[in-house]
Design a protein around this nucleic acid. Sequence first.
DNA 1: GTATTTGTTGATACTCAGTATTGACAAGAG
DNA 2: CTCTTGTCAATACTGAGTATCAACAAATAC
Lengths: 166, 166
Amino acid sequence: MTTVSTKSASAVAQAESNILAALEEHGSRMTWPRRELAAMLARRADAFSAEEIVAGLPGLGRATIYRTLRLLVEVGILCKAAMPDGSPRYSLDDVHHHHHLVCVVCGRIDEFRHPSVERMLRAMKAHVGSELVGHRLELYHRCAACRESGQGGEDIHMHGTHVHAH
Amino acid sequence: MTTVSTKSASAVAQAESNILAALEEHGSRMTWPRRELAAMLARRADAFSAEEIVAGLPGLGRATIYRTLRLLVEVGILCKAAMPDGSPRYSLDDVHHHHHLVCVVCGRIDEFRHPSVERMLRAMKAHVGSELVGHRLELYHRCAACRESGQGGEDIHMHGTHVHAH
DNA sequence: GTATTTGTTGATACTCAGTATTGACAAGAG
DNA sequence: CTCTTGTCAATACTGAGTATCAACAAATAC
């Protein structure tokens, strides 16, 4: 999996300062490891696993990277989705409150919002007696690029966690 | 976490033979470890982790248990849901094609079907250009029992994976 | 400018949730 | 009864984290 970023230099700079701003706003200290990580994440256009980042920043400790990723998720600048087998993927968060459209071939994660989801959640809220404290929704598909290149005619890794394919 | 099963003896026997029948139907061999595992699972009324089963059946190898759990998921007699932090929980599958209502306090998993979900999926299918190959939906709540006993006023482990709490 | 406090770091070791490998073994078909 | 092939247990490995803790460094207080 080559790291081909399709981001323009300005988009990268923008993303980086967004991350740093979010940390600052949260009251976190600005340290060298965090700046490194911010720069790294800003450069990536795609979704990634924590271990990819660990491997890509050998100067930083594992714990620091996991801690900081969690922090960024809490702060709302990063989001974490699950692949069909349950393994997590991180991606920079553009829109807040959204759901995930995950390509099972290339792992690309798109965010979306759609009224039908909110409608469904309202209906379920009424249906279950108890208070809902959260939800998780992921839709799995083969993205346009992967469909075109004809890859993954079969499901790649649709075994594992509860996923309905119909 | 004490293993208090609220299942009647007949329900246990029923569940056990369901599991064995599903394996047989699938063309799997009937072995002592599988019978042991089936008996174990049938006894449980609640959701469980794979490691709980490993610990509860010291006579069986880890690999065997993981293999057999996966087999049972494939066969459709067992299902696997994710807790808010992403850790998997298994539970016996009663209704086919359903979604999960997970209690964040006690871990209880209920299955449900609701037309609003199907409606939402149809809408999303139309919305995204590409073919949907699967989905994952989990709703997190505090179940009636946990609300009554007043436990978990705060979210217990809502950190981690992408969960919207609002 | 220095002292202090408190957040942060990185090393190490650990847990949990699996998968890969492999030689031994046993279920069930013939 | 034999043979094939599915299944087993042991072992070792990966990925995804968390726990601990001494060393350190940012922001602040003086």
